[in-house]
Amino acid sequence: MKKVLLILAEGFEDLEASAFIDVIGWNLIEGDGSTELFTCGLKKEIKSTFNQKFIVDFLIDEININDYDALAIPGGFEQFGFYEDAYSEKFLDLIRIFKIKNKIIASICVGALPVGKSGILKGKNGTTYNNRVRRIALEEFGVNVTNEQIVIDDNIITSCGPSTALDVAFLLLENLTSKKNTEEVQKLMGFLSIDN
């Protein structure tokens, strides 16, 4: 079983987190059955952007990274405290250890910023929310910021906004399983024609 750890910072964006939850979950039930997703955070109850409450499966301190194959990081809103959690040393250390263990790291939108701040994207290609302030912040972490919607460099996926959430989640699934399996899940979810 391939396990995905979804790390949630206070003020994370619901749409971006739910893309990972749905795609990995659909694969568990309707795809090849080989993936599971678990959530973690700095505290048990996390509020998302727009103040929805979520209870995570684990605290970051409880995570054994060897149990997981990939880390998923949704972005969030500064107004709801996203960077306070996302830039904390515990959050950044988790990202660093996933990189040291050569595991897949998939981020959406400003989820790329803690990846950049952790140092693992220094000298690599990446992207983030298509906003001048956020792009400059990523550049200041030593990242070669590109204008692509989704960038993959050395097992690290970054993307430019919420509209890429499902594409990033499907890319993660493809990396964990196969292109053929991912296409089957996309068909079942209605993103590809059954005739393809």
Rank of each mutant, 00 (worst) to 15 (best):
L8E: 08
L8H: 11
A9N: 10
F12G: 12
D14I: 12
D14T: 13
A17P: 02
S18G: 06
S18R: 02
A19D: 03
A19C: 09
I21Y: 12
I21L: 15
V23T: 09
I24M: 15
I24C: 01
G25R: 06
G25T: 10
N27C: 06
N27T: 07
E30R: 15
E30Y: 13
G31T: 07
G31R: 06
D32I: 12
S34W: 00
S34M: 13
E36N: 14
L37N: 08
F38T: 01
T39V: 06
C40P: 08
L42W: 02
L42A: 06
L42T: 06
K44Y: 13
E45G: 00
S48F: 02
S48G: 14
T49R: 11
N51V: 00
Q52A: 12
K53A: 11
F54I: 15
F54D: 03
F54H: 15
F54Q: 04
V56E: 06
F58G: 04
F58P: 09
L59V: 05
L59Y: 11
I60A: 05
I63D: 08
N64E: 15
D69K: 03
A70G: 03
A70C: 07
I73W: 07
I73S: 04
I73Q: 03
P74H: 06
G76D: 03
F77Q: 10
E78Q: 15
Q79I: 07
Q79E: 15
Q79W: 01
Q79H: 03
G81V: 12
G81Q: 13
F82Q: 08
E84K: 15
D85K: 02
A86Q: 09
A86V: 05
E89L: 13
K90I: 00
F91T: 07
F91A: 05
F91R: 10
L92F: 06
D93N: 15
I95L: 04
I95P: 07
I100F: 03
K101P: 00
K103R: 13
K103M: 10
I104D: 11
I104F: 13
I105R: 09
A106L: 11
I108N: 00
G111R: 09
A112M: 09
V115A: 08
V115G: 08
V115Q: 01
G116V: 03
G116C: 06
G116T: 08
G119M: 06
L121H: 04
L121Q: 00
L121P: 00
L121T: 01
K122C: 05
K122W: 01
N125Q: 11
G126H: 11
T128P: 10
